[in-house]
Design a protein around this nucleic acid. Structure first.
Lengths: 206, 206
DNA sequence: GTCTATACGGCGATAGAC
DNA sequence: GTCTATCGCCGTATAGAC
């Protein structure tokens, strides 16, 4: 139970903060050093170069992209429960680290080579999701649907509002508290939206 | 019908390209000059500083954020038609200029002051949309719903896939062509998704 | 209006004392 | 391991010839 962080830990914490906020190109080694309360030279002592320091941060971030989402879809229960679980977990992740998705989308555009190579190793649980959806469709719980579209719907609905948070707050004239409560309402809304879309055809009631 | 562009126009075109791709911090005046086929000094001759050049580009981009969306919701027709029209128009806009949303979300985070002031003047047509939804609800065409949530749904579903395009292509293992056709399918999907969600309660069939 | 040359500062990175 | 000092490069911006 040591509350004193090592120099390396303080550097990493500072680097996360600055890289996530400014991206690779916008981040300054000096700012990271200041944030960590140490000297610029120490950054190079511990991590040779800006590139290598960035790689460590990037690796961490990518590892946290897909929490334990795959397991949710492989577990027991109805698809509605699984989708609900996915949304809960994913909203929580994005809410805790809102900078990560924007950071990743940015780097994917400005430094594609660097990012996309590593991104290949962090695929979403598309296979598990497809299986879960097929089984649910066979049970008549939902209609047949393209799991890629459904995953894109889910990611869009969960991630976008946090990525665009400052813009949306301005558009809707919201305070931070109001935004948070609006975001909270969304969890349930999103699940309903998706399940409604996947409802099986009901010729009788049509 | 003059195909020869003035120097100023060529600078602006080059600046759009570079700023949209790299953001303010990542863009280099040298790159803009090369792209325009002129000298670096000319940039400063026409636009004094990088900041002022950027402001011009930003202004343009903000003006194109909301096409003539407001009019769609004020016109005749069912809400389903209006939503469909919104999606068509908005997808088209984002498809044509995919860099603009990411660019705006970025600058909103890294240079909030500069952007958010001007952003206030480019609000989405929330008022028109709210009115159209209230009227549709009164006609029994849809259930009562928070127009802010509906607008957030729409923006999320339309914008996110384009902003995250490189990432999604990698996740799903898609070529550019495959991505485009997936995006095309989405237009209809999104409209259905939203209208399904807004369907009025039907106690008889419930 | 367009060019070359240059000023000036900030950046990443390293050397070397302690 | 930690610091100060400094190198070399590249960024924005300007001066001045044509």
């Amino acid at each position: 139970m040591e509350t004193v962080l090592t120099t390396e830990q303080r550097i990493l914490e500072a680097a996360r903060k600055v890289f996530f906020a400014k991206g690779f190109g916008g981040a300054r080694m000096q700012e990271i050093a200041d944030e960590a309360g140490i000297n610029k030279a120490m950054l190079h002592y511990y991590f040779r170069s800006k590139d290598q320091l960035f790689d460590v941060i990037l690796e961490e971030a990518l590892g946290r992209l897909w929490p334990t989402v795959g397991e949710i879809f492989m577990g027991e229960g109805t698809l509605a429960e699984k989708i609900g679980g996915f949304v809960d977990l994913y909203v929580e992740m994005v809410q805790e680290r809102p900078y990560i998705p924007l950071f990743i989308m940015n780097e994917a555009q400005s430094n594609p080579a660097k990012l996309l190579a590593r991104l290949g190793e962090c695929r979403p649980p598309l296979q598990q999701m497809a299986t879960a959806m097929q089984q649910a469709a066979a049970r008549g719980e939902i209609r047949a649907a393209d799991p890629r579209q459904t995953l894109m719907h889910l990611m869009s609905l969960v991630v976008f509002p946090f990525v665009a948070r400052p813009v949306l707050k301005m558009f809707f004239g919201l305070t931070e508290d109001q935004f948070i409560s609006l975001a909270r309402e969304r969890k349930r809304e999103i699940t309903c939206l998706i399940m409604n879309d996947l409802k099986p055809d009901t010729p009788v009631n049509n």
